[in-house]
């Protein structure tokens, strides 16, 4: 009797196995804009790491005689009021921007994901306490909250990171909370519990991987956002303290001489824009490549 045959003949010839890494790279690099974003990010990371080696001039001590020069063959992007080379300061600003971006996203991401995961998984009183605190933090616009913390703590890169971390934690917590609540109801979580897995195991090895694709997109979008917020704080004068090089502060310094040497403001402005754009594009590409639900489609 054929129905007693427990091997399924039609599946004998398994389809050729797809190399998941190859697939990842193919989908990830499918769009040219993603490659562009990657190149921009690579250049930025490169210049942030090797800033000391590649800057043409000292970013902190200028030549007073050369102040407020327009871009020319000596100073490619001109100089500021103190005669400091804009390009050099821009390169050092990259270091500040990326450092603030990555560290803030790291701290806020880990804290927010942990809080959201716990709130979403356990529900009840735990969820109430965590999420109401997050809601309270969320009442304030993110930038206002960051400004408040930065003003209280004072300027400096460390305090900017702390302020932006606290201000962005609720975003991650909320997204993670929602994801957890929907993933928790899946049959495979029940199946996992029926196998005797502990709560910690279910949260870490089953819910977390399932929530990664949206979280990765969120993190990359947030990276751009954080860099922009850091620029805004520095622009307002409560961020990175002078003489530290920060893009926001550079825009603020330059805009007084906007008609005289527009490059002074435009160069850091364009840098900010490029970074945010690059992060967003790479985030999109990552989502396409990582979401298992898109496997087989893309």
């Amino acid at each position: 009797m054929t129905e007693r045959n427990t091997t399924v003949d039609e599946f004998q010839e398994a389809p050729p196995r797809i190399n998941e890494w190859r697939r990842f790279w193919r989908v990830f690099l499918q769009r040219k804009i993603v490659i562009f974003g990657l190149v921009v990010l690579f250049l930025l990371v490169f210049s942030a790491i090797f800033a000391d080696l590649i800057v043409p001039y000292d970013p902190y001590i200028g030549v007073m005689a050369d102040s407020l020069e327009s871009p020319n063959s000596t100073y490619w992007l001109g100089t500021d009021i103190q005669g400091r080379d804009t390009l050099s300061r821009l390169i050092f600003g990259t270091r500040t921007a990326l450092m603030v971006g990555f560290i803030t996203v790291g701290i806020a991401g880990i804290a927010g994901v942990t809080l959201g995961l716990m709130a979403g998984y356990f529900g009840g009183i735990i969820s109430m306490v965590i999420m109401r605190i997050m809601d309270a933090l969320m009442c304030f616009p993110m930038l206002i909250l960051a400004m408040l913390f930065a003003a209280v703590l004072g300027g400096g890169i460390q305090n900017v990171i702390i302020a932006l971390s606290i201000a962005t934690v609720p975003g991650y917590a909320r997204v993670m909370n929602g994801l957890t609540m929907s993933i928790r109801e899946n049959d495979y979580i029940m199946a996992e519990r029926a196998m005797g897995s502990s709560n910690a195991r279910i949260m870490l090895s089953h819910i977390l991987p399932n929530s990664l694709p949206p979280m990765i997109v969120l993190v990359t979008l947030q990276l751009g956002m954080i860099i922009m917020s850091e620029a805004a704080l520095s622009f307002l004068g409560i961020g990175i303290k002078p003489p530290g090089a920060a893009w926001g502060a550079m825009v603020a310094d330059g805009y007084r001489y906007l008609t005289y040497t527009p490059a002074l403001s435009f160069a850091p402005g364009i840098a900010i824009m490029l970074v945010v754009f690059a992060f967003n594009m790479v985030g999109d590409g990552l989502r396409d490549a990582l979401d298992p639900r898109l496997r087989g489609i893309l």
């Binding site: 049959d187 495979y188 029940m190 996992e192 029926a194 005797g196 089953h206 991987p209 298992p292």
Partner: peptide, 28 residues
């Protein structure tokens, strides 16, 4: 959710669910 109950689930009493399409974690 205690350790005694967890050591019975799966090891001593196992369960098969109705929906094979959703009973496996799609990302692992």
């Amino acid at each position: 959710n205690g350790p005694e109950m967890r050591s019975i689930r799966g090891a001593k009493i196992a369960m098969i669910f109705q929906e094979p399409m959703t009973s496996l974690n799609p990302v692992l």
